[in-house]
Design a protein around this nucleic acid. Structure first.
Lengths: 204, 204
DNA sequence: TGTACATCAGTGAACGCGCGTTCACTGATGTAC
DNA sequence: TGTACATCAGTGAACGCGCGTTCACTGATGTAC
């Protein structure tokens, strides 16, 4: 077989990016080779360069797509964007064992944010744009509570949850890993999705 | 020159580990080659294998040392371990531009925790042990406030701060990066190091 | 303390390997008439 | 609509490179007497 139509080429392009976002989150950018990636797309690696100038161009595209997917999934979990309504569900899912155990399909931040610092300027810029969207859309779920700006609260919540999953995935002790998720889930739920102000002391 | 004394060999070993913890935090494990590392130690790369069975053995040792150093530095910042006293200083330093801009000398977690998941079992185990120490020693700085266990609070604070530095380092927009640090510093200080319970509304 | 031998820290060339990327080629798709 | 030619998506062998690791070697250090 030698050539496919232009429509099929677009689909191939999308399939490469799609597999790449998953592979990058699962194995890191350096840990995902072009030959291995193209094999998963069922093409020879030579054709990669008909779609992208180089690996860097793919990385930039995959980061943006991965961040977008991440937020889409989170907002979908929250149901209709009723302000504050679904935030508890978002936190519970983000800090779940299911999310921890599925890096390839989960949020891009705990999987890849640590590598962004060492990527090329275009990749870092694409990531930053995607992250700004992320913060903004997450912020819309948070009810205004302390007079803090929505975005400031989104920064805290997003970075905090990313850090929790980061550590929960790193340790090899399942109990400790569960403890990290449990403690953070309780904390962030109370801080961002709990009742506005009760005089009762909170319990588990 | 051909051979040095046993005492000098021990020093060489330490110098390799020391340079490795810095290089790994700055460039990642995969991004640090044995030849490049040994050049920084001013030795030819062949002698590396007189000190370590393979790269993995160095990685395990460097993780433990890096985590230990990190906590030592933090506790030193907190001054005498007066409970609750130095926590504000620890948070302020961790979430400072200075820390963000110095990955090689800073906390190991935002720099390397994302890679641990893909390391060998011995490396993950060494990391987990080091992290348990980290949590315990950090927990001793946190005043008991809500009846939560010290360790649970340490998990939240450590993972939250690590996530904040992780994202602050990833973005290429200095303003956004500063915002992340500022918002998280205000939040975690109020949550963990602030006054136990004031009726006043907090301000900046 | 002095001598003779064994050890082994460090040297530097070499290895096999997988990486990102290139390139001549194939033949179905797209286009001009 | 049919024919003739140009394009180009995908193929598969090949490249230069740096990686982790090995190894024969050197000569100062360590040890036995």
């Amino acid at each position: 077989v030698a050539r496919t139509s232009r429509k099929e080429k677009e689909q191939t392009h999308r399939r490469i990016v799609e597999k790449a976002t998953q592979a990058f989150r699962a194995s890191g950018v350096a840990g995902t080779s072009i030959p291995a990636l193209m094999e998963e797309v069922n093409l020879t690696h030579g054709t990669f360069y008909a779609h992208f100038a180089n690996k860097d161009a793919l990385v930039a595209e995959a980061y943006v797509r991965g961040l977008g997917e991440t937020v889409d999934n989170l907002l979908h979990l929250a149901g209709e964007p009723a302000p504050g309504g679904g935030l508890e569900a978002v936190i519970a899912h983000y800090l779940s064992a299911q999310h921890r155990d599925n890096p390839a399909g989960g949020c891009l931040l705990p999987a890849l944010a640590g590598e962004v610092r060492r990527e090329s300027p275009p990749v870092r810029h694409a990531f930053t744009n995607g992250l700004n969207d992320y913060f903004e859309r997450l912020g819309q779920l948070i009810p205004e509570r302390n007079g803090d700006a929505d975005k400031d609260q989104a920064l805290v919540l997003a970075s905090g949850m990313a850090g929790a999953v980061l550590l929960a995935r790193a340790v090899d002790d399942p109990e400790l890993s569960d403890s990290i998720l449990r403690a953070c889930r309780a904390f962030y739920t109370a801080a961002f999705a709990g009742p506005p102000a009760t005089s009762d002391h909170e319990n588990d």
